[in-house]
Design a protein around this nucleic acid. Structure first.
Length: 332
DNA sequence: CGGCAGGCGGTTA
DNA sequence: TAACCGCCTGCC
């Protein structure tokens, strides 16, 4: 990474409520990868969520058209008051979108830094299971992601695994998205598919450059054949049809409207609401949650889980879901 | 080789 | 409305 062109933005955060690994590895986002220490070239290989030893506090990724390296310095100590710890969140941003005049407010919003997670944890701790789950994922925060990106991401996520979801999103962006200009990158274009050659070519592009997700307008004009190199499987048609709907009607904020999109059912609509629309009460029910609900609360019927979550977790259902997820993951 | 992965669409009772 | 099945793909 070329330090000279990076814009540095810092925030003071409470490390108890802010852990990059918890934020980026919980399955809410798919465009961040762990990178090794200061000053080194970022490594963006297929990590499958595994960290190189000792380098779990820096990530590189893209959000809101901004490519950035994000790190947290853990070397901090208590302030004079209240015994609260502090850490510095450092964002080294490599580019700025054309019309952006306030990158700082973008990241402040993206990481939802005005929300007091300590208070949320306290509220959720009224439930004994959540109280026990929190230590395993205490630094989670629900990011405020772009609704369209969230929609695309979670349509792709169905019946899929995280490494491939990440790869699909990256390849889709490389194939059809706008290249992000960060000053020193190579140029590359591909058109038709001699399959293997195209695949290799695209891998090279994706490895060296950053691309934004294609817009609804771009995707709506594409065909399943156009998207074949990305190897989305049956999800390609879902994406195109959804893009066409969004172009015609806009992306609704209503759950019922989201649910009616092609390739979007209850789980994906809940994820869009939670991760893309800031609806913290939204409680996505996936296979992991079903296991948790059975193991910890003895609820076996999926049809009863939403109501249970609403009663038990209320306005913070989505955040409770994240703590439970980490709890379950740790316990295996 | 079959099983499976952070669901959904479509079809049946 | 609940239960079932097939699905692209990649990895084990």
């Amino acid at each position: 990474m070329t330090d000279s062109i990076a814009k540095k933005i810092t925030f003071t955060v409470d490390p108890e409520d802010f852990v990059l690994r918890h934020i980026f590895e919980c399955g809410q986002c798919f465009r961040w990868e762990p990178v090794s220490g200061m000053g080194e070239e970022p490594f963006r290989g297929e990590m499958n969520g595994v960290f190189p030893s000792g380098t779990d506090n820096a990530y590189i990724g893209i959000a809101g058209g901004r490519v950035a390296r994000v790190s947290l310095d853990a070397s901090c100590d208590a302030g004079a008051d209240a015994g609260g710890k502090e850490a510095t969140l450092l964002i080294e941003q490599l580019n700025s979108p054309e019309e952006s005049n306030d990158d700082r407010s973008f990241w402040n919003n993206y990481f939802d830094l005005d929300t007091d997670y300590g208070a949320i944890k306290k509220s959720l701790s009224k439930d004994e299971m959540i109280r026990r789950a929190i230590p395993f994922g205490h630094g989670i925060r629900i990011l405020r992601q772009d609704p369209w990106e969230t929609t695309v991401s979670f349509i792709i996520s169905q019946n899929n695994n995280i490494p491939r979801i990440k790869r699909n999103i990256r390849d889709l962006s490389a194939l059809a998205g706008e290249r992000v200009s960060i000053g020193s990158s190579t140029n590359g274009q591909t058109e038709d598919s001699a399959d293997q050659a195209h695949k290799d070519n695209m891998k090279n592009i994706a490895a060296n450059d950053w691309y934004e997700l294609p817009s609804p307008e771009t995707l709506a004009r594409m065909t399943v054949d156009d998207l074949a190199p990305v190897r989305l499987g049956y999800r390609a048609r879902y994406l195109i049809e959804t893009a066409q709907c969004v172009c015609e009607r806009g992306l609704s904020v209503l759950y019922e409207d989201l649910d009616s999109l092609c390739g979007v059912g209850p789980k994906v609509a809940s994820c869009i609401s939670l991760f893309g629309l800031g609806r913290r009460e939204s409680f996505p029910i996936d296979v992991w949650v079903k296991r948790v609900m059975k193991e910890l609360y003895g609820i076996e019927k999926p049809s009863e889980m939403a109501a249970f979550a609403e009663e038990t977790f209320g306005e913070y259902g989505g955040i409770a879901q994240q703590y439970l997820f980490y709890y379950m993951r740790e316990l295996g």
